[in-house]
């Protein structure tokens, strides 16, 4: 037993304080928006120049000039705004975005994040990843616990190129919730049916249970 992707997204949604500004990374993090209560008062920021991003449009309402950072058609909620990229990154770099939920290739126990390129693989680019990782007030990583080959993604030190140093606060995987603690990961919560022994075995760094 462990969490499926929907359950991971639902767990991540519980990390979002009411009234926050949140940026959701491409991929798994985009699912998180579906698990927020309507009255949460959360505003989604998309770095291509949109604050107050809503769900995908109804068929027939899609506008090719209203997209998210993944270049998917989206909507804008009442009270939303559109702006240029310099303003958008001022929001990020200036510390106005409360939380960014990002994917990861590796997270180190000191909070280093690698999420843009695995050397030898296809280099997709940097996009807004480095600005978000170093600029948002809090970084939550949402990722599978191990790679497709079973290698730990939570490690002592990243060997892939870094996105930012010491930026990650918390990690949610299908196995549980862990905090970055400098010389170890700290267990916050186990997914149902997952043992501490299994979590420790699949984590490539010391695991502290409290």
């Amino acid at each position: 037993m462990s969490w499926d992707k929907q359950q991971m997204a639902a767990r991540a949604a519980r990390e979002i304080a009411p009234g926050s500004i949140v940026n959701l990374g491409i991929g798994l993090p985009t699912l998180v928006a579906d698990y927020l209560p309507d009255d949460a008062g959360v505003w989604f920021h998309s770095e291509n120049g949109l604050l107050g991003m809503g769900p995908f449009p109804y068929e027939g309402d899609e506008d090719p000039q209203l997209i998210n950072a993944g270049k998917e058609t989206v909507t804008v909620v009442a009270g939303g705004s559109t702006f240029d990229s310099a303003t958008s990154f001022a929001m990020i770099r200036g510390g106005h975005v409360d939380l960014a939920i990002l994917g990861a290739m590796q997270v180190a126990m000191n909070g280093d994040l690698a999420n843009w390129w695995i050397p030898g693989g296809k280099m997709m680019g940097i996009g807004g990843a480095m600005d978000l990782a170093s600029g948002a007030k809090r970084i939550l990583v949402l990722t599978q616990h191990v790679t497709k080959d079973g290698e730990p993604k939570l490690v002592r030190a990243c060997d892939y190129p870094l996105t930012a140093k010491g930026c990650v606060h918390r990690v949610i995987t299908e196995l549980g919730v862990l905090d970055v603690a400098g010389d170890a990961f700290t267990l916050v919560e186990l997914a149902p049916g997952v043992s501490e022994a299994e979590l420790a075995a699949k984590t490539g760094a010391p695991l502290r249970t409290r």
Binding site: E59, E62, E72
Partner: peptide, 10 residues
């Protein structure tokens, strides 16, 4: 104005 990734909901 091509759609790059057209996403809609029912």
């Amino acid at each position: 104005d091509p759609f790059e990734y057209r996403r809609v909901r029912a």
